[in-house]
């Protein structure tokens, strides 16, 4: 008789428990990634097995919250992948300029650094006043941080370099106020950003938008879930709208590949064809 790997069963049961109890659905995330995050939490917890963790997840809300945070990746930067933001300025901004008002959906915005980067570009291009950015994430803790817009001052040197490499010509220091070891994003950049809790796995379309940015989120999903979320983006975009993915993400395996024209293959920028 051949047995299945015990930890495979335990991980599957644990994810079931998280979903059934709290509604967060990680069941179609990439297994190797999820396993790593769960094993890290297991080590930190001092518990003896994943099954024991499941007991805690079901009966201890604060433990469950820790695990759910572990399973959510919040790593981001302002102007992450400067080449992408350069291409955004050169190839996407001209498309946006044709609209009298602009709606942008930043899906999986985490702690907001990239939503603020977008706000800076729009302001420099004279588009910010007629734009609404919907910045969404399922991680409420990350969203709360994003809303505050307060980042460690120590990161600003790196972000300034990113900004300059992305083609930024202004003084980056003009976009925040330093206070002790913190950098506080200017209020003017916040006013047209709507922060909202939205889960790509379980929630549906909420607005028609001209631009969807979702970078380094789909890499954590299995192919079937990637396809489902791609459909969500497609349904959210207006005809001629633009989809921006992470630098290692593509439409290659998506059923919708043929429905987009390529604006920039290397930077993963696609334009929805007219139906």
């Amino acid at each position: 008789m051949e047995y299945k790997d015990t930890s495979d069963i335990e991980i599957s049961l644990l994810l079931d428990a998280v979903y059934k109890k709290y509604g967060y659905d990680f069941r179609q995330y990439s297994e190797a990634h999820i396993r790593r995050r769960i094993m890290n939490r297991l080590t930190l917890s001092g518990l003896g097995s994943i099954s024991q963790m499941q007991d805690f997840v079901l009966h201890d809300k604060s433990f469950a919250s820790l695990l759910i945070q572990d399973l959510s990746i919040t790593v981001t930067e302002m102007f992450r992948d400067p080449d992408f933001y350069k291409a955004l300025r050169e190839k996407v901004i001209p498309v946006l300029k044709t609209y009298p008002f602009i709606k942008i959906w930043h899906a999986g915005c985490s702690t907001g650094e990239e939503a603020y980067s977008m706000a800076i570009i729009l302001r420099e291009e004279g588009l910010y006043e007629r734009t609404t950015i919907y910045a969404t994430d399922f991680n409420q803790q990350a969203l709360n941080k994003a809303k505050e817009g307060i980042f460690p001052a120590g990161l600003m040197k790196e972000y300034t370099l990113n900004y300059q490499l992305s083609g930024g010509k202004e003084s980056f220091a003009g976009y925040y106020t330093s206070s002790y070891d913190m950098a506080i994003i200017n209020q003017a950049l916040k006013k047209n950003i709507v922060w909202a809790n939205h889960n790509l796995v379980t929630d549906s379309v909420f607005a028609e938008v001209h631009l969807v940015l979702c970078r380094n989120v789909l890499i954590y999903f299995e192919r079937s879930l990637q396809n489902k979320v791609q459909k969500l983006f497609y349904d959210s975009l207006t005809n001629g709208g633009v989809l921006c993915l992470g630098s290692k993400e593509s439409l290659r395996f998506s059923d919708l590949q043929g429905e987009y024209a390529v604006l920039d293959q290397k930077r993963r920028i696609f334009k929805k064809k007219y139906e």
Binding site: S30, H33, I73, V75, I219, Y220, G246, K248
Partner: peptide, 8 residues
């Protein structure tokens, strides 16, 4: 197959 992660 491969997975990529942009995590910490």
């Amino acid at each position: 197959t491969f997975s990529l992660a942009a995590s910490e």
